[in-house]
Amino acid sequence: MSNIKIQSIAIIGKQNNPLYIKNFSKSHPDLKFHYIAHTSCDVIDERAGAAGPEPDDTYLGLLYALEDLAVYGYVTNTKVKFVVVLSIPDAVIKNMDMRNLFKKIHNVYINQVCNPFYNLDGKKSIVSKKFVASIDAIGSMSSDEAVNP
């Protein structure tokens, strides 16, 4: 995990609507990550589509790299997309690490979905405090690690 510096975590609904986008970066504006998350949808659709109707893997790996940012993608079985943006470390980022990271995000999302009052088909952003705190924890944890390896 040492070389993973999370810049942003985005959760995108199945209709490509943003559910939650968090910016952990100090150098980039929020807008940038919104754009990145949005552009990732295409790549995710393409990757997930290429894998056939029942993809064996929900982890889609590196979607693309742009400037100093690497964009990773993950799609749940319900077509909810997770996008993690990392700053490029010039080192190998192990897929296992990324998988674990996405698993964590997935768990947080599952907890959110388990809330009976949460509207699965809603297009509103997720505002649950617990959810936000958990995502923040994932983001800041890895970036802290990056700062103090």
């Binding site: 590196l62 693309y64 790299a65 690497a70 990392l86 190998v92 296992m96």
Partner: peptide
Amino acid sequence: SSMSSISSMSSNPNTGSGINPTMVLQHPGF
């Protein structure tokens, strides 16, 4: 060019494949 990461990886028994985003050639649009 990425000697350090590889050395750390080879020590890792779980040598799961990884990817260095800087080394991924993308199409010219980028």
